[in-house]
Design a protein around this nucleic acid. Sequence first.
DNA 1: GCGTAACCTTACGTCGGAGTAGGTATGCTC
DNA 2: GAGCATACCTACTCCGACGTAAGGTTACGC
Lengths: 212, 212
Amino acid sequence: MSGLPTFKRLPRAVREQQMLDAAVKVFSRRGFHAASMDEIADDAGISKPMVYAYLGTKEELFVACLHREGTRMMAAIAGAAAPDLPVDERLWRGLRAFFGFVGAHRDGWAVLYRQARGERPFAAELAAMRNQLVEVVAGMLDHALRAGGREVAATDLEVVAYALVGASESLADWLADHPEADPEQTATRMMNVAWLGADQLLRGTTWHPPKA
Amino acid sequence: MSGLPTFKRLPRAVREQQMLDAAVKVFSRRGFHAASMDEIADDAGISKPMVYAYLGTKEELFVACLHREGTRMMAAIAGAAAPDLPVDERLWRGLRAFFGFVGAHRDGWAVLYRQARGERPFAAELAAMRNQLVEVVAGMLDHALRAGGREVAATDLEVVAYALVGASESLADWLADHPEADPEQTATRMMNVAWLGADQLLRGTTWHPPKA
DNA sequence: GCGTAACCTTACGTCGGAGTAGGTATGCTC
DNA sequence: GAGCATACCTACTCCGACGTAAGGTTACGC
């Protein structure tokens, strides 16, 4: 009608991705509650009822974001850390893929790590993903330990793995706030902390609290 | 009037603490936005206008919670890790105090770590506290390195410190969800991961990525 | 014993934002 | 080129929750 480019109609699959992009962006900045469906729709260049028609309620939309970003992240990591490599090589590749993902999808990371945590209905979803990672890391440690003829209680291994995953998440979060930082270098730093500590553990060196 | 114990009037200082207790509890479970002032007032056994009269708006109330819990935590850590002890002893005492605090104030921890993060106006407050911790840890590492005649770029040290703090937070969070777990033991585990890795670092052992 | 200040309440105004009703336009199929 | 499904919009309803107005009650000083 007017000279302005009256925007084209697009197939559902395309619009859904645009909506998810907008939702991830808005959720990452505002958080679940403070984000408004109006703003998301606006940002996607579409009207609100379309969002409801395609992605359902606000909660369902948030879950959809979580799924997309979570799946992408896990796929990136799993695709990099082939299970037939030596342990330190696997760890290194996994870390590199992880930090690479965070560097390339800062918004997605923020939704996963900063916003979904603590929001009652979504925390479980996230915990499941995190546990998957912890299990993998614990499995790697266990594998390496057995190869060395040693054995450690499963609980202990899991706690160590938990700490390593937590440290990585923390550095990733730092990375997300520092656009100038290099994901590769951050991965190397994390590898230093993780592997050197893990390596000592694998050798049987342990630290004990001084007697009270 | 009736036989029911018609609750006493209490001085402002006492009521304020009760309100803060209730607020921390509710905020920790629901998060900032989903928490309602009505529920907080209810939980404190008082009516809503009293909360507004004493602690101000919802945002101010949340900040008050953050301040109280944050100050308590930092005080607990600082009080335990005297600066004239050897580095590993300082680290150990600091960790023990930290995990002790989290074990004893799970709600407070949840507000600080799970809820304040990602909520635009409060994240900065938290980041400042966290940075204080990171600086202290980085300072400890630097001190130990110089004593050994070595030196490492400040940025590298800070990133390592950041990772260690992150790992601790992560384990603390795990602890908050596992009432049966022992804070002391968790601290020991963290010490193992942290100190052994740091120790290697202090000795100059480093890991390098394999050439592409 | 009486005024005054501090403690405390019920009952509202108001507003942002989730979710929907009902209708229009466009392209694809036959 | 008629019919139909799909893409899309404007304009509403309604509820929950922040924040407040206006007033009641207990203690304490003098």
